[in-house]
C-alpha cells in the first residue's frame, strides 16, 4: 500500500472538514484496505472514524431504531432490539463474511463497499467501471455476475445490509460539506447507466453518520435469505429480503428485494403484487418467487442463479410470514 496522511478526528463535523480532495473516510477498512492493496484506490489521506464519538451506538426509541454508521456487523447481529424490530437486518448482518470480518466491518462501510467483480478488482483489467470501454464479464468468466439489468456492466452489488434496509425503508443521515441531509435507502443506489464510476449517491466528502429504521406495524415480519457457495466468507450468489404485514391471514404491504443479482439491489414490484392479498403459504410464495425471476438475462455461466433465486425468494417470504404470525398486535 502507498503511504497516506492519517487523520483521526474526534467528531463527525471535524471528519467531514478533514476529508478534503484526495482523502477518503475509513470505518472498519475491511474493503478499503483490500482496494488499496490492489492499487484500485490510492487515497492521499485516510480520515479514520475510529475515534469519532457517537457513531457506534444502537439507539431505540418510539421513532424506531438508530444505527450509528460505525456499528460493527458483529454488534448489529448480536443486538436484541435489532433482531426484534428489524429481523431482516439482523439476518443479513449474521450472514455476512466471517466473525473476524464482522468484528471490524461497519454499517456505513457495508453500504459503501465496492463490487467484487473479479475484472473490476484485477489491477490489469481496465473495465468500463474503471474508465475503459469493455465489460469483460460479458464474454469472460461470469459465474458470479448479474442476471438482471446487465447490459452495460455486470457487477452485482455486494451489500447484504442494502436489501434488508430497503425492506425496512431505512433513511440514511448524511453529513457533508454543505451540512446534513437525509436520503431514503431506495434513492441511495446508482445504476451503471447513470454513473459508471460509483454505485452510490454520496457526493464527494459526504459521510453516512446514521441509518434510521422506523418501527414495524403490528403483525409484521421480515427476513433475509442468502445462498452462498460455502458457509463463510462468501459473497452471496443470490439473496432476498422480504417484509410483509398480515391483514387477517393475507399478505399486505409486501416488500421483496433481490440482492446479488443486479448492479443495484432490486425492489421487485411485480413479485410484491403477486403476493399481496394472498395467504403467504408455500404456493403463494412460489408464485411470487416465479414472478421475481421473470425477465432474467443470465450470462453463459450464471443460469443457475435463476432457480437458486427462486428458492431464495420463496424461503424469505415463508420466513417473513412465519415471523409476522408470531409478532404481536
Amino acid at each position: 500500500m502507498k503511504n497516506f496522511d492519517w487523520i483521526t478526528p474526534a467528531t463527525a463535523k471535524e471528519a467531514v472538514e478533514a476529508c478534503t480532495a484526495g482523502r477518503t473516510f475509513m470505518g472498519g477498512g475491511t474493503d478499503l484496505v483490500t482496494l488499496m492493496k490492489a492499487g484500485l484506490v490510492e487515497p492521499a489521506g485516510l480520515v479514520s472514524l475510529s475515534r469519532v464519538t457517537g457513531l457506534d451506538a444502537i439507539a431505540e426509541d418510539g421513532e424506531g431504531l438508530m444505527l450509528g454508521a460505525r456499528v460493527t456487523l458483529a454488534a448489529l447481529a448480536e443486538n436484541t432490539a435489532v433482531a426484534r424490530r428489524a429481523p431482516a437486518v439482523a439476518d443479513s448482518a449474521r450472514n455476512t463474511a466471517t466473525p473476524l470480518v464482522r468484528n471490524r466491518a461497519t454499517v456505513g462501510g457495508n453500504l459503501c463497499q465496492r463490487p467484487r467483480c473479479w475484472y473490476f478488482r484485477h489491477p490489469d483489467y481496465k473495465c468500463s467501471k474503471k474508465g475503459g470501454d469493455t465489460c469483460y464479464a460479458i464474454e469472460g468468466e461470469n459465474k458470479y455476475h448479474a442476471i438482471f439489468e446487465n447490459t452495460t456492466c455486470n457487477i452485482v452489488h455486494p451489500s447484504n445490509l442494502g436489501p434488508a434496509f430497503m425492506a425496512h425503508d431505512a433513511e440514511l443521515v448524511i453529513l457533508g460539506p454543505k451540512g446534513e441531509r437525509k436520503l431514503s435507502i431506495h434513492e441511495f443506489w446508482v445504476r451503471p447507466e447513470e454513473d459508471m464510476k460509483t454505485e452510490i449517491a454520496l457526493d464527494a466528502g459526504e459521510l453516512i453518520t446514521r441509518v434510521d429504521l422506523k418501527p414495524m406495524p403490528a403483525r409484521t415480519g421480515s427476513a433475509f435469505e442468502e445462498v452462498n457457495e460455502k458457509q463463510s466468507f462468501d459473497w452471496g450468489l443470490v439473496a432476498a429480503a422480504v417484509r410483509l404485514t398480515l391483514d387477517g391471514d393475507k399478505a399486505a404491504d409486501v416488500r421483496i428485494i433481490l440482492g446479488a443479482v443486479a448492479p443495484v439491489p432490486l425492489r421487485h414490484a411485480e413479485a410484491e403484487k403477486a403476493l399481496t392479498g394472498r395467504v403467504p403459504d408455500e404456493k403463494a410464495a412460489l408464485a411470487a418467487a416465479e414472478k421475481a425471476v421473470e425477465g432474467a438475462t443470465p450470462l453463459r455461466d450464471n443460469h443457475y442463479k435463476i432457480a437458486m433465486l427462486k428458492a431464495c425468494v420463496k424461503n424469505a417470504i415463508l420466513m417473513a410470514a412465519a415471523r409476522a404470525r408470531k409478532a404481536g398486535g
Partner: peptide
C-alpha cells in the same frame, strides 16, 4: 481477510491483522 491465518486480538477482539492498519 478470507483465511484467518493472521488472527490476533485487538483490544480483546479477534481480527484479521492483514486488514488492520498499523497506525490504527
Amino acid at each position: 481477510g478470507a483465511c484467518g491465518a493472521c488472527t490476533v486480538l485487538l483490544d480483546g477482539v479477534a481480527v484479521n491483522s492483514c486488514l488492520v492498519l498499523a497506525v490504527e
